[in-house]
Design a protein around this nucleic acid. Structure first.
Lengths: 199, 199
DNA sequence: CAATTTTTTAATCATTTGTTTAAATCAAAT
DNA sequence: ATTTGATTTAAACAAATGATTAAAAAATTG
């Protein structure tokens, strides 16, 4: 505490987190970060060598927390149905706190398709998750189990990615949007279970 | 034809379409566009005044075609179920041809939240669409009809936005991805109708 | 306290990038 | 064919941007 918030290195990281998340890599200038952190521009390079290295650090941090969250939820020893409920509930909570996270990750992933996937060992770590084994076991149909996972992620995450469009079309307020996302915590598990049980 | 493809103005637009779509506004340099179009750099400003004006043009074009597509499909005089089928089918076809379109639009919309929504009269034009009136009429439940529209868009569009993650996690090939999207043309209507009829 | 190391600062550099200019070339009209 | 206007070109400009430097200030060590 004492050191962590006043510490120059941490101040730069904090500013970088905020701005990169908000505006992406290309739209964030080193001078913006320095100003936001309230430090001299040269200190950015002193502590992190380059803008790119600083970004890689922040990006990895985000990918890891995204992954750890997923891993933690989907590895719990729970009923399959309970697990879906837990996922929707805690993931939407997380997204309401970090609404910019998905579009940030997906935008940057577009520019460096492999870079970040490799260094987080995404595939390896997700593959041994309980939920997936359960999901595969559950589907006796000819429909690929991945479809159901895609559906779950889609209806949970997409509203946050497509938010400007959704609000632009429907005209709902920020408050109404949040309200609807709260409702989805309970609706998503029902929908997914419905889809799963009829396949 | 004769003029349209060799025409300098059109060559620049074509190059701009390709590069903006692929890399976004900030990551596309005017020199890249000039090189791609095979023309002198100054011609970009000669014909379009500025990079920003050129971009606004391309962006509006994309928003319009996105909107017209939606409008055309959702205004057809068809059964509600048929309409959902038509939507999934033709929208996935479109997305397979333009897989970068959603992430492009959503990324840029993040930087200029209102700018493009206003000038396309998105809300006004979508609001008078047959499909929505039908959707609202259909839902007697206490669940907001917008939820179902969000679901339809989510499971249709999100796979293309989240493609790097989906392929990174599952390890499926490009070909397998395309195959799955083809399958979803028939699956999505079933899922959506299932959800609708149980609400 | 003096010496040494670490941190911070202001100034500057080198490159990139969007845009402009002035001259050259091309096309159309009289 | 000459004139006039439109198009194209090479060169340059100005601002933005990531990075470096050398000196000053602060902190640490002996």
């Amino acid at each position: 505490m004492t050191n962590k918030d006043t510490n120059t290195e941490e101040k730069i990281k904090e500013a970088a987190r905020k701005l990169f998340l908000q505006k992406g890599y290309a739209n964030t200038k080193t001078r913006d970060i320095a100003a936001e952190a309230g430090i001299n521009l040269a200190l950015l390079n002193y502590y992190f060598r380059s803008k790119e290295k600083l970004f890689a650090l922040i990006m990895k941090e985000h990918m890891m927390s995204f992954l750890s969250g997923l891993q933690h939820i989907l590895n719990q020893e729970l009923d399959f149905d309970k697990q879906i409920q837990l996922f929707a509930d805690s993931y939407i909570d997380m997204l309401l706190v970090n609404p910019d996270l998905p579009i940030f990750i997906l935008s940057e992933l577009r520019n460096h398709p492999d870079k970040f996937l490799e260094e987080t060992q995404l595939r390896e770590r997700v593959h041994e998750v309980r939920f997936f084994k359960e999901l595969i076991a559950r589907t006796d149909s000819k429909v690929h189990p991945l479809h159901f996972f895609i559906n779950l992620i889609s209806i949970t995450v997409f509203p946050f990615v497509g938010r400007p469009l959704i609000q632009g079309i429907s005209g709902i307020s920020d408050q109404q949007f949040t309200q609807m996302m709260q409702e989805r915590k309970e609706l998503i598990p029902k929908w997914i279970e419905l889809i799963l049980s009829n396949s």
